[in-house]
């Protein structure tokens, strides 16, 4: 427990965590401005940013030395494509957009209790999964989150009674979490937060982030 606390405490401020993305130019304008301001006011942070830029340059050079695949890759690909059965063009239904529109139609007063809202979120998540399986059919790519055999990581949470289904659905989406169990005693729900086994520090950081959310009343690590 002390080790977990120590690891969580050693994490720097969010602005320092963003330095790699600032160097790569992939931050939003708002976050980039925040980092720029911090760099202008903190010489130590600016020195660390120089290290990040050094790492960025060498990571690019390292990758650029890797070369390119031979023509065999393309030949193999098109030989396989030629062997594929002919298919008809298909229309696509965006279930994600539909779900967002549907859920945001609910108001907090309509769904007064977190457990009720979470139960609805479970139903909606189950619906998404069923929809994905139906859409995917029996061939081809499915996302890693649905098919991986890696050990998963879990967090137990109790949702705030005032949280609406839309709040909970957004919270789950933002945290890439899926409700896999509950409600247990005390209104606790079990969330899968990663398909892989996260380190203690990473899991502690997720618990910390979730605890800070107004949607959540209580969050703790779970097995």
């Amino acid at each position: 427990m002390n080790t977990m606390k120590k690891e969580a405490e050693e994490l720097p401020e969010d602005v320092e965590l963003l330095l790699p993305w600032h160097a790569a130019g992939t931050l939003s304008r708002r976050d980039a401005a925040r980092v720029e301001q911090a760099l202008a006011n903190d010489n130590e942070l600016a020195a660390r940013y120089d290290m990040v830029r050094e790492e960025l340059g060498e990571a690019i050079r390292l990758n650029e030395t890797l070369g390119a695949p031979s023509a065999r890759a393309m030949q193999t690909l098109f030989a396989k494509i030629d062997a594929e059965p002919a298919r008809k063009p298909r229309a696509s239904f965006n279930i994600g957009v539909w779900l967002t529109d549907f859920v945001t139609g609910f108001q907090p007063r309509t769904l007064a209790y977190g457990a009720t809202a979470a139960a609805l979120a479970i139903v909606l998540q189950a619906g998404i999964l069923a929809g994905v399986f139906v859409k995917e059919g029996s061939v081809g790519f499915t996302s890693a989150s649905l098919t991986t055999n890696e050990p998963a990581s879990y967090v137990a949470v109790r949702f705030n009674p005032q949280a609406s289904a839309a709040d909970i659905t957004k919270f789950l989406a933002d945290n890439k979490a899926t409700i896999v169990g509950g409600p247990a005693s005390g209104g606790m729900f079990k969330l899968r937060v990663s398909d892989s086994s996260l380190s203690e520090a990473e899991l502690s950081a997720i618990v910390k982030t979730m605890s800070a959310s107004p949607v959540v009343g209580l969050a703790a690590k779970a097995n």
């Binding site: 963003l18 160097a23 945290n175 937060v193 990663s194 520090a201």
Partner: peptide, 28 residues
């Protein structure tokens, strides 16, 4: 992050972990 120029959100989607974990994993 460095070579493929992926944002926090995109890395989270590719790796299948929360955005907060993306930041801490990069830190570690």
């Amino acid at each position: 992050v460095y070579y493929h120029e992926k944002s926090v959100e995109e890395v989270a989607e590719i790796v299948g972990i929360p955005e907060a974990t993306v930041k801490t994993r990069m830190f570690y």
